[in-house]
Design a protein around this nucleic acid. Structure first.
Ligand SMILES: [Mn+2]
Ligand SMILES: [Mn+2]
Ligand SMILES: [Zn+2]
Ligand SMILES: [Zn+2]
Lengths: 140, 140
DNA sequence: AATAATATGCAACTTAGTTGCATTTATTAT
DNA sequence: ATAATAAATGCAACTAAGTTGCATATTATT
């Protein structure tokens, strides 16, 4: 149901109070349809199947989606950001699995992290990040 | 005692059974002297105070040190690798603290990680990584 | 000192992401 | 509907980390 993702995306973007643009809509719909985190490149490819979109604009769309908490971005060892939609169930305190062979990133929603660890004197805790590396089901 | 670090570096490199080169020695000595993880750039600056070293060679030296378990490298959100020496006490299963203001990376040696979490069916565990973000003592 | 294996320097390249600026588009007010 | 305004877009140029190929220099061995 690709149409469903469009409607959902429209609702989510409207809800921020900011502008609903063609590109934000298309991009978010693509991310809603995916089960794992996508790179800028991967999103670009999917987008350009239907209609060209400038890569700089996509960077800015992704930044906007991120700032508005509609997606979160994940840093990997390959120096590439990956983007995954935030759903109600899937908020932000969870671990990430990175397959070291195919580089695919999966969000481990089950895996909750207990926060506020003990830090050296004077250090201020803000966020904790748990990344598990290994092989995904397809690569193992 | 900078001389001390040189001697220690020499011993560590010799112990790998590979070649002891001027650049490996200099680089490792610098890393031994530091209390936090350094970027390629930061190491380059320190090295070039005494004597020029080509940046490509430094990349290769760091790669070699890393492969030989004399240092470990840490990925950050700024797409830059940081390098920290491995001492006996300081092996590799520990968490990292990243200051979001000054970007300094500290190894939290106390903070041990319990491994082998439960993963989706078919997934193979290899490594776990814990990163804590916040402000360091100087920036808080 | 001669040899062989490996490390180094240099130039050129790759790739993700950023910046400035002129033009277009979404929203709001008329 | 139309005009006005603020924000989004496209394009060209740029930045910066890291990589590759190859000729030359260095290390360790004989
Ligand atoms: Mn996630
Ligand atoms: Mn460390
Ligand atoms: Zn995989
Ligand atoms: Zn700091």
């Amino acid at each position: 149901m690709p149409n469903n993702f469009y409607e959902k995306a429209k609702e989510l973007i409207r809800h921020t109070g900011n502008r609903l643009t063609h590109n934000r809509l298309r991009t978010l719909a693509i991310l809603l349809a995916e089960q794992y985190a996508l790179t800028h490149r991967e999103i670009e490819e999917r987008l350009n199947m239907k209609e060209q979109l400038d890569r700089v604009t996509l960077y800015r769309v992704l930044e906007w989606l991120s700032k508005n908490n509609l997606v979160h971005k994940i840093a990997g060892d390959d120096r590439v950001w990956r983007f995954r939609v935030n759903t109600e169930l899937h908020s932000h305190q969870h671990a990430h699995f990175i397959c070291t062979r195919c580089t695919k990133v999966t969000c481990l929603s089950d895996y909750r992290i207990k926060s506020s660890p003990s830090l050296p004197l004077g250090y201020l805790f803000h966020e904790i990040e748990l990344t598990i590396k290994g092989l995904c089901a397809e690569c193992a």
